[in-house]
């Protein structure tokens, strides 16, 4: 049963994809998955490549629908929301980090973060203040007016973290956020991510195949045989 304190609640979620572009027998990726993320809790999802980790994260964030089951975010059922409401939810209550930083190329580091703040409803001035504040938290005060192509991979990912957190979301969805970084940078981004998540009391749904990274979370789930098992 969904409790009122649950932030994300997946109940009996199933998802399949068509085998080929032309259809054919669909391939079942997830089957009757249950998952609960409570406020300020960090949850790691691991599993083999192709096991459906990203799919699960995207379903939980409302970026993708499921075939069966229910997905709740706070007090709303995502399946019953229209695109407009889902966008509003993403802008204010959710943050995203992916393997690629997905920064807007024509915009500076600061503008990338400001843009997210303005999408979240801040005025231009507020957005600027918030962006500068959070960018200094990720150690990029000196890189405000650099464009993504003038930043290193680790710096870009730190800008992405700043962008994801600028609206003080309830949850951060992170899909292999250190996947494209070298070890040193990965460790640094990892540390930064956890310190900010803890400091701001943001829930975290982290997809990673790096077990030591996963161990820093409060719970570790593993996808195997189309279902989730708790392994830590």
């Amino acid at each position: 049963m969904k409790r009122s304190t649950d932030l994300v609640y997946l109940h009996q979620v199933s998802k399949s994809f068509p085998a080929t572009l032309r259809g054919g027998e669909p391939i079942q990726i997830l089957e009757s998955v249950d998952l609960t993320v409570q406020r300020s809790r960090a949850i790691a999802i691991t599993g083999n490549s192709g096991s459906g980790k990203s799919t699960l994260l995207q379903i939980a964030a409302g970026l993708m629908g499921c075939d069966h089951g229910e997905v709740w975010f706070e007090h709303e059922k995502l399946g019953e929301m229209d695109n407009r409401a889902l966008s509003a939810l993403r802008s204010r209550r959710m943050g995203f980090i992916f393997q690629a930083s997905l920064l807007l190329e024509d915009f500076t580091a600061s503008e990338n973060v400001e843009m997210a703040a303005m999408i979240g409803g801040s005025s231009k001035g507020e957005a600027r203040d918030k962006a500068h504040e959070i960018l200094s938290l990720v150690g990029l005060s000196a890189r405000l007016s650099h464009r993504p192509d003038q930043l290193s991979g680790g710096e870009k990912q730190r800008v992405a973290i700043a962008r994801a957190l600028v609206n003080e979301p309830a949850i951060l969805f992170a899909d292999e956020p250190t996947g494209s970084l070298d070890e040193g940078n990965a460790a640094m981004v990892e540390d930064l991510l956890f310190s900010l998540v803890r400091q701001k009391e943001v829930a975290l749904l982290l997809v990673t195949h790096n077990l030591s990274f996963a161990r820093r979370c409060d719970e570790i789930h593993r996808i195997s045989e189309r279902n989730l098992e708790v392994i830590g």
Binding site: S87, R90, S91, R92, L102
Partner: peptide, 14 residues
Amino acid sequence: RIATLHLIGAQPQV
């Protein structure tokens, strides 16, 4: 770029 904007919650009409 537009997909990224949508991802971070920008309304398509904006």
